[in-house]
Design a protein around this nucleic acid. Sequence first.
DNA 1: CGTGTTGTTCAGTT
DNA 2: TAACTGAACAACAC
Length: 261
Amino acid sequence: MPELGDVEGFRRVASRFHGAVIERVDVLDAGSLRDVDPQHFTEAVCGGRIGPATRVGKWLLLPVAPVTVLFHFGMTGSLVALNDMERLEFHDRVVFVTDGGRLAFRDPRKLRGVYVADGDAQVREVMGVIGPDALDVSPQVLRDRLSPVRSSIKASLIDQKRIAGIGNFGADEILWRAHIRPHIAPSSLPDRQWQQLHRSLREVLSATARAGHTPRGPRWLTGARFREDFRCPICDASLERGTVAARSTVWCPICQPSANL
DNA sequence: CGTGTTGTTCAGTT
DNA sequence: TAACTGAACAACAC
């Protein structure tokens, strides 16, 4: 699930803990703690006060001075606030017990996890090489960063080192709204399609960030993706499914023409 | 028991 | 070299 919008939702969950003090950390799965052992992690954050949560691409950063806790949610991770009544769930991996409630990193598949960094340099090191957040890129930056890709426009959109935050569903959604077929080479896009791509990107990402997840309503391709009839919400044509950039990909054969005329 | 999966990394190939 | 592809990771649903 976690793409930019989902992580933005998790950021809002975390922001409710701004100012809370971490009293204890329950590490239920040491493997979800990346590159740090439970003792070291616990010592680093216990007694610390939680600062304002921020998001960069698909990363969530939680300052606990003097360190920063980083979360990456892989495909199945989430961040949940638990009230005093609620019991832990089986897939809760790391639980922060604070004076303002409990915050749990939940992740059935354990593909990513929780990291800790000391200082900005280490934060950047943990996140690796990633491009600017997708919600911050101008039309010009978008074009400059994606156009060198020689495979497909979809591959360029989900490449985190070009721009950060777009995932598989988001890329399909953006390309569908821009009427661009995912297989098309960036080099073949005319000016007006780059403009349309940027508009669609803003539309999709701002809506997903506002919602805190990728909507699956009647006007969303992501909705149609899971609907029984599998039809385009714009033109009602039967959608097509295939593999692009090694990911499962859905597009409309009518709304997203295979060539630019 | 296969097949598929919203993310990333790495080994291997072009 | 750089770009690209596909398997692997872990766990679960179907």
